[in-house]
Design a binder for these strands. Structure first.
Length: 193
DNA sequence: CGACTTTGACCTGCGC
DNA sequence: GCGCAGGTCAAAGTCG
């Protein structure tokens, strides 16, 4: 076992990731394929959105616009489902102790793994109750980075994959830097005139 | 051979 | 205390 991990050091603001993953650099996932998590048609009971998102309220400041509204919408969605509510509460309370910022989003794709520019190592897979598809657990492979993500496909709409990020990368995105470096060099060159 | 995936076992937290 | 469910570990297997 790994035991308790030391708290992540404060992050320099310039390394904070964008509010959404860097789809701009993933041709297989154009931004148009993103699904806003507010679509009632896509609110699957498979996904405990409230528990997924509630943990982010503690330290979630920079990335909350999309996901906070999603969480509140999901909370409303749940109020008429008291039977499930108790279970959700149990799960939500379990997530309370998590202090890492979280955000989740849906993508429509045949692939479970979306290329967000970072490298991930799968460390677990678990069958989830009320879901046909298992949930996969990934960690960022960067040695100093403690970011995790969970990936789960909806059984209600199998074309939709829900990805939940936990934590913030403390290193630049490799693909982002690859893409930006020549642009920056060009800008530096042009700025001399 | 290193990086990564698979998968069963184990740990933890919670409700009953 | 027990059972359930989610999350993680780590050994073994796979791949390039």
């Amino acid at each position: 076992m790994e035991g308790q991990k030391p708290p992540a050091p404060p992050l320099p603001p310039q390394l904070l990731p964008p509010p959404t993953p860097s789809f701009l650099f993933t041709p297989s996932f154009p931004s148009s394929s993103l699904h806003p998590p507010l679509d009632p048609q896509l609110l699957s009971p498979d996904i405990d959105w409230v528990s997924l998102l509630s943990a982010g309220q503690a330290g979630f400041t920079d990335h909350k616009p999309m996901m906070e509204s999603a969480a509140s919408t999901m909370a409303e969605h749940r109020t008429d489902q008291e039977e499930r509510g108790n279970k959700d509460k149990r799960k939500a309370s379990r997530m309370k102790k998590a202090t890492q910022p979280r955000f989740a989003f849906q993508t429509r794709s045949a692939d479970d793994i979306l290329d967000d520019g970072y490298r991930w190592r799968k460390y677990g897979q678990k069958a989830v109750k009320n879901s046909v598809y298992p949930r996969s657990y990934y960690r960022c492979t960067h040695h100093t980075c403690n970011v995790k993500k969970q990936v789960q496909r909806l059984s209600k709409d199998t074309s939709i994959v829900v990805t939940t990020y936990e934590g913030i990368h403390n290193h630049p995105c490799e693909k982002l830097m690859e893409t930006l470096t020549p642009l920056l060099k060009q800008m530096q060159f042009l700025s001399r005139f």
